[in-house]
Design a protein around this nucleic acid. Structure first.
Ligand SMILES: [Mn+2]
Ligand SMILES: [Mn+2]
Ligand SMILES: [Zn+2]
Ligand SMILES: [Zn+2]
Lengths: 140, 140
DNA sequence: TTTGTAATTGCAAAACCTTGCAATAAGCCG
DNA sequence: CGGCTTATTGCAAGGTTTTGCAATTACAAA
């Protein structure tokens, strides 16, 4: 399972400093629905801590990504959305015609990951993918 | 097979105008190794046609993408690279640790595409993917 | 509690890409 | 060929994300 606080604990273990900016960025991600943008995080943080700069939010997101604590996914909106890894893994099918999106269980990608590991020794990071294409309604 | 000129033919068929800007952008893509950036295309175009603006290059690339004539792939460099679909399909494994990249035949993605089509009626556009992760040397 | 050090931040600027709008020009038709 | 229509372009501005650098501050150590 995943408690709120997982991310903070990991940062502490690894010797990263717990600044208010980081703590508030992490809180925003953990309380989100799992598809939160940097701008949305910034809006939450700045409301309680007006001095903060959005570049700090970006730097925190980059750090959490490097540590494998969040994933970033491009849904084709012109901005990236972030998901805490602790909330579970899944994927999305995004129709480029009508914009419809469908959730996809992580098991759909397991065979691919297994092949890449077996045949190339490559451990693929496929934890929160947006796959683009055409949905059934929009034809091939 | 694919001749040079495929893209131009398709644009004509669909009634798009053949401006010098478009023709030179297309030539740059077709003569590239299949991983060319907008800035690199622009550099080639501007050397023969100094008046051109890079936004026109971007607009042409967007058009070709919509028409399914090029793919755009993010290799994690901060800019996207373009590949003419006529030159064939394949994928890349990109190690986030050491930066090594390995080519991957398109057949590696076929099972996934088939599952998505069969189970979701979703026709996934997976023609020139960069898959991130850790290579064998860099461990799991 | 104070001090020291290096990690972290804010700020300004830059890099990449998109977009609104008025000016231009490709292709059609006579 | 010459004019007409409207798709396309250049330009300027804006959106998202990254980065260099000097100032700040978290945390360890005294
Ligand atoms: Mn999701
Ligand atoms: Mn390639
Ligand atoms: Zn659709
Ligand atoms: Zn590697």
């Amino acid at each position: 399972m995943n408690h709120s606080g997982d991310i903070v604990k990991k940062l502490t273990e690894r010797g990263y400093r717990l600044t208010p900016q980081r703590l508030m960025t992490i809180a925003a991600i953990e309380h989100s629905d799992g598809h939160i943008s940097a701008e949305e995080i910034y809006a939450q943080v700045v409301s309680k801590y007006p001095h903060v700069n959005i570049s700090t939010v970006y730097r925190t997101l980059e750090l959490l990504k490097q540590l494998g604590l969040v994933t970033d996914t491009d849904f084709g909106e012109g901005r990236v959305r972030y998901h805490p890894v602790g909330k579970g893994h899944h994927h999305h099918l995004v129709c480029q015609e009508c914009g419809a999106t469908v959730d996809l269980d992580e098991t759909a990608l397991t065979p691919l990951k297994d092949v890449l590991l077996r045949e190339y020794g490559f451990s693929a990071d496929l934890r929160h993918l947006a796959i683009f294409g055409r949905c059934g309604k929009c034809g091939s």
